[in-house]
Design a protein around this nucleic acid. Structure first.
Lengths: 346, 346
DNA sequence: TTGTATGCGTTATCAG
DNA sequence: CTGATAACGCATACAA
């Protein structure tokens, strides 16, 4: 553990003052080209590295953004984070990432940890069971910009980056209706989060528009994992009369259900048409390929990071009231939903 | 932007010295219970938060681990990171995560950024085209512990967390041989990284063990994305005589290939048996379900983080020579490879 | 264009 | 058990 080189060491070796070194390193305009070159060359040569602790202490900022997500091992989430990282890195910010594992309790401790880390801003997608935002109060009070994405809640001054879940679900369900489906099941997650509430609303809306009845028993709640898809299949198989359409809030779950339904002797889409959500890689692997809502995860990540960084640099967070950015989503029609049997565009 | 509360403020309000406050906050044994309680209560009440910049500056450590991965939006990688995050969080460490996008150039700038962030340690899975470790020299010199996982290179003192790729590939290929395959194709990535080199070796080994010839033209190189799987299918369809087995280095790619092969009129597994790698979610969705190598990503993440933290706390990094931790992987046999047509265990 | 001096908020040493 | 004081390394206001 050799001693770290500091600007004082550079200054001494170059026979100039630490202040000049500091300014030179920052490419300050008031320092001569020649001096800068000497500074940089020596710094390079003796392996100087900025002490960000000291710098942050002085400047009162970390150039770091905090991210809290429900789970890291989800295709959708990791795509979002990829977008955030690309944008953040290009602007000189780094990402500290925490997962809540869908537990508000962990979300709380994540928030505390990120607060103490003094992240400059925060991007959050809420856990399944988060019911209020009190654990973010310290951020609100200190006016640390906080952006919600995907799973959001309203809070004055916090921008939300979203898709129109209601509309997407409505379109997906309407598509099933147009394929002739009359008994459409909706498989989703517990209704504590906006995304699931809104998708249910969209589903109901489409039914209502078509004059179809809404039936409580057609809404199946679970965790949207593959096993939940298989469980949904088991439930569907038991229903009498059998449903002729299903709209899922998640592709992975939908795909597993399709496989299980086929194993149980159902034909997809002839007996039962299926629509998923997210446009995951599984959608183009399951047979028939899954009709789904293309969710722009990467774009969402880029957008959230870009807006957050802009708020940091302009200081305009918490100024106006809540801004909602709605990203375009799109129903991608594949074979799993086509009662006509005609292949559509991928 | 109200002023931040410091230990001086607490001290003043409590009529005690900042030193006592600092000690109280750290639960120092030499402070009376009563004083501690007063300190904590007031801290809570007026919203004090530790200034980690100052603390880090003093203590010369950040309690932060750096992670560099090739891509974030990969099921395997995000599973690894989930494991790292769980372990790190439980030990009071945070994760700064960067992606190289498979470019050594970005890997380089990630390394530089993490060096300046003064992460306490680093966990790295290398980019496709990384050929040497010179961009990590500063870490080596400063004895900052660095652990490689999955895509590794040898460096004295750097622990590697791995599976036995050679053995896994050998088993996978041998399994195909046992199913009666004689002309086995291997779809993998450019041979710059250990994982692909070793898998190729395992593949060759199994062929040799079975007295089958190795043919250069049976090794298809690509990026292991779904489109590469479709391209592989196109190539396979053109081969004469047609191959009767394929071993992929990636499930997602394998699954896309299976779909394409079936569309081209091949029966899987009857005409061509398929084995993948990773045990991704797609493996249990594609039909037939994919035989694959179960890769313990979550465990790998936990292990890497645990070892890194241990090295930090015991200071034993770079002491001994390179340690290699080999995690168990396992061939999971499903229908895609069974020429007998008998379903196996999932 | 460069130098001097000071403070950012902790922790730790030493003294009481 | 508690207090005074000196770093930690950098950035900047002010001076030259």
């Amino acid at each position: 553990m050799e001693k770290e080189v500091t600007i004082y060491d550079l200054a001494e070796l170059l026979k100039i003052s630490p202040a000049t070194v500091s300014r030179g390193l920052q490419d300050h305009p008031a320092i001569s080209k020649k001096t800068k070159k000497r500074i940089f060359d020596l710094a390079e040569q003796i392996g100087y590295r900025t002490n960000s602790f000291a710098r942050n202490l002085r400047s009162r900022q970390s150039n770091t953004l905090g991210v809290i997500v429900q789970r890291l091992d989800s295709n959708f989430i990791s795509t979002v984070i990829a977008g955030m990282e690309d944008t953040a890195a290009s602007q000189g910010y780094q990402l500290i990432i925490c997962q809540s594992s869908e537990q508000v309790q962990k979300e709380k401790s994540n928030a505390k940890a990120l607060l103490e880390s003094r992240v400059d801003g925060l991007m959050v997608s809420l856990a399944f069971d988060t019911e209020d935002l009190s654990h973010f109060n310290a951020f609100f009070q200190k006016k640390i910009p906080l952006i919600f994405f995907d799973r959001v809640m309203d809070h004055p001054g916090c921008t939300q980056v979203l898709i129109d879940n209601r509309k997407a679900a409505c379109e997906a369900t309407r598509h099933l209706v147009e394929q002739g489906c009359k008994r459409i099941v909706h498989v989703t997650a517990p209704l504590k989060q906006n995304v699931y509430v809104e998708r249910l609303e969209g589903y109901k809306q489409a039914l209502a528009d078509a004059g179809l009845p809404f039936r409580e028993e057609y809404v199946l709640l679970g965790n949207l994992r593959q096993e939940d898809g298989r469980a949904a299949a088991a439930a569907i198989v038991q229903m009498n009369p059998a449903p002729d359409g299903v709209f899922f809030s998640n592709d992975n779950c939908a795909a597993a259900c399709v496989v299980a339904l086929k194993a149980a002797g159902f034909r997809v889409p002839e007996d039962i048409a299926v629509v998923g959500f997210n446009n995951d890689p599984v959608a183009t692997v399951v047979e028939p390929n899954l009709t789904t809502v293309d969710y722009p995860g990467y774009e969402m990540g880029k957008t959230a990071a870009r807006i957050l960084i802009r708020q940091l640099e302009t200081g305009e967070a918490y100024n106006s009231h809540t801004t909602v950015i709605t990203l375009p989503s799109e129903l991608v029609i594949r074979q799993s939903s086509l009662h006509t049997g005609v292949a559509a565009q991928t």
